Simulated scan of single mutants.
Amino acid sequence: MYELKDKETIFVFTGPNGAGRRTVADMAGNTLGVKQVLSYTTRPPRPAEVNGQDYHFISGEQFVEAVRRNEFLEVIEIDGYMYGIKDKDVEDMLRENGAVYLVLNRHGADILKRLYGDNVVRICVYADRETILERQKERGDSALMIERYMSHFDEEMAYRAECEHAFENIDLAHTIFDLTKTLDSYLNRNLLDLD
């Protein structure tokens, strides 16, 4: 496992599926020049997802082989699909950038926090149940997928108290503004507040 240096930071975006955590993470990452470490999964892509952009979509056999070679920092199973983060991906991107971000559920966030301690900053992005249901319907999730995602809603919301920061994502621009200022305090990039 890669030994993080003092100033290296891993931002982990978590929260209920449909709260906009990936959108928020991507926008904040782009603003601050922080790169994403993608998870590997055996889950099939959703209609709008792109391999190598949202996840690395791999077969069950490829996943098992990577586990056998001890390539993953963490491996979890959710709803019958496997997810994992590769140690080498985290190491390479931290060496290059000094900070990275990941989008994970509470289990993955916990694993990284245990592995890297204070170098991991967990950010819960959340919204109320009705807002999330509406967003899932708008993006075309099936009733079965929505039911599966919502079965984790209460646990993901409860995890908010464990996170270093939490942002309610109702107004995306407002969320990004507040989040970017918060993340900049870790990066010491001193973004100008022109308000």
Rank of each mutant, 00 (worst) to 15 (best):
M1W: 03
Y2Q: 11
E3Y: 07
D6A: 10
D6Y: 07
K7D: 09
K7S: 13
T9W: 00
I10R: 02
F11A: 10
F11M: 06
F13P: 04
T14R: 00
T14I: 04
G15H: 02
G20W: 00
R21D: 11
R21N: 11
R21S: 15
V24I: 14
V24M: 10
M27R: 14
K35S: 04
V37L: 06
L38Q: 12
S39Q: 14
T42A: 11
R43H: 07
P45Q: 08
R46K: 15
P47D: 12
P47H: 12
P47E: 12
A48R: 04
V50H: 11
V50N: 14
G52E: 03
E61M: 07
E61N: 09
F63K: 05
V64G: 05
V67K: 14
R68K: 12
N70I: 03
F72P: 00
L73M: 09
D79R: 08
Y81E: 09
M82T: 01
I85K: 02
K86I: 04
D87T: 08
K88W: 06
E91V: 01
M93F: 05
M93D: 02
E96F: 04
N97M: 02
G98H: 01
G98Y: 00
V100W: 01
V100N: 03
V100Q: 01
L102W: 01
V103F: 03
V103H: 05
V103L: 04
L104A: 05
L104D: 02
G108M: 02
I111P: 04
I111F: 10
K113H: 10
K113Y: 04
K113T: 13
R114V: 09
Y116R: 09
Y116C: 05
G117D: 07
D118N: 15
D118P: 06
V120L: 12
V121C: 08
R122W: 00
R122D: 09
R122T: 14
V125Y: 09
V125E: 12
T131N: 08
T131Y: 07
L133Y: 13
E134C: 13
E134N: 15
G140D: 15
D141V: 01
S142K: 01
A143Q: 14
A143C: 02
L144I: 11
L144V: 10
L144N: 11
M145S: 14
M150C: 12
S151G: 12
F153G: 08
D154V: 07
D154K: 10
E155Y: 14
E155P: 06
E156V: 04
E156A: 15
E156T: 13
A158V: 00
A158K: 15
Y159F: 14
Y159A: 10
R160Y: 11
A161R: 12
E162I: 03
E162P: 00
E162H: 13
E164Y: 00
H165R: 11
N169H: 08
D171A: 12
H174K: 10
H174I: 09
I176C: 08
L179K: 07
L179R: 03
T182W: 00
L183Q: 09
S185P: 09
R189T: 08
R189P: 00
R189E: 06
N190Y: 10
L191C: 13
L192V: 11
